[in-house]
């Protein structure tokens, strides 16, 4: 039996909203250590990896490892019925063909239950090696969202180049070109506005803006986003979910 209660149910709503346009369906894997998902978009250009640690849940029980296949659009429909302040409990029997979502309002006056049919999904799991990156950049997530949105109105791809004190985002298209530079700024007064660069080697890589804009839908999950870059390797766009886990996106370079 699997049972997990998340006091901040809004987190689960935000996670699903962040990935539902990128991934059609996916297996949610549950074991003793937590709740996770790994899936590629339909063109196999990007990979999503979600992990929510067991200790991030108020209550977590998983007797056997289970894999629950869900269509993200359907999961989203159900989670939209949960209030933003509701606690969400997920429940499934070991060989069950449904998962139950229970929503509880803060004062427990309203309790609702929704059952979602599970489906069999063939998915390939990829092993992601632990890597040392040439550059790691931490920027406010809202800033990153704005940059990739603004640049997408000019071009289709962005070159991200990192030097020791700045990260530059550049694009060009039919109407012209643009570049946005963010300087390192370790703001102690407003840590949520800080930009931090940790560099071993200057690096410049080009990526499709369409995917970065899709990843930026995870902005409500975290005040910062971490970009990890190495020459000729996929970029990692990582949102740390405070006290619970992480949502990471991997995008192959152009």
């Amino acid at each position: 039996m699997f049972e997990a209660r998340l006091a901040q149910g809004a987190l689960l709503k935000k996670v699903v909203e962040a990935i539902k346009d990128l991934i059609e369906d996916a297996n949610f894997d549950c074991n003793n250590s937590g709740f996770s998902l790994q899936a590629m978009d339909s063109s196999h250009v990007s990979l999503v990896a979600l992990s929510l640690r067991a200790d991030g849940f108020e209550h977590y029980r998983c007797d056997r490892n289970i894999s629950m296949g869900m269509k993200l659009a359907n999961l989203s429909k159900i989670l939209k019925c949960a209030g933003n302040d509701d606690a969400i409990t997920m429940k499934s029997e070991d060989n069950g063909d449904t998962i139950t979502f229970m929503f509880e309002s803060p004062n427990q006056e309203r309790l609702s239950e929704f059952d979602l049919k599970l489906m069999d999904i063939d998915s390939e799991h990829l092993g992601i090696p632990e890597a040392e990156y040439d550059a790691t950049v931490k920027v406010p997530s809202s800033e990153f969202q704005r940059i990739v949105k603004d640049l997408a109105s000019i071009g289709d791809t962005v070159e991200i180049s990192v030097t020791k004190d700045a990260v530059k985002f550049s694009t060009s298209g039919d109407i012209g070109s643009a570049n946005i530079m963010c300087r390192q700024n370790k703001s102690v007064d407003k840590p949520e506005e800080s930009t931090e660069i940790d560099i071993n080697e200057p690096v410049a890589l080009t990526f499709a803006l369409r995917y970065l804009n899709s990843f930026a839908k995870a902005t409500p999950l975290s005040p910062h986003v971490v970009l990890k870059l190495s020459k000729d390797l996929p970029v990692v766009v990582e949102y740390h979910i405070p006290d619970v886990g992480r949502l990471g996106f991997y995008l192959a370079p152009k």
Partner: peptide
């Protein structure tokens, strides 16, 4: 899209 690599070439299949 032209020049777009697949993510599968970078990670090993489990």
């Amino acid at each position: 899209a032209a020049g777009q690599k697949s993510i599968m070439g970078f990670f090993t299949k489990k």
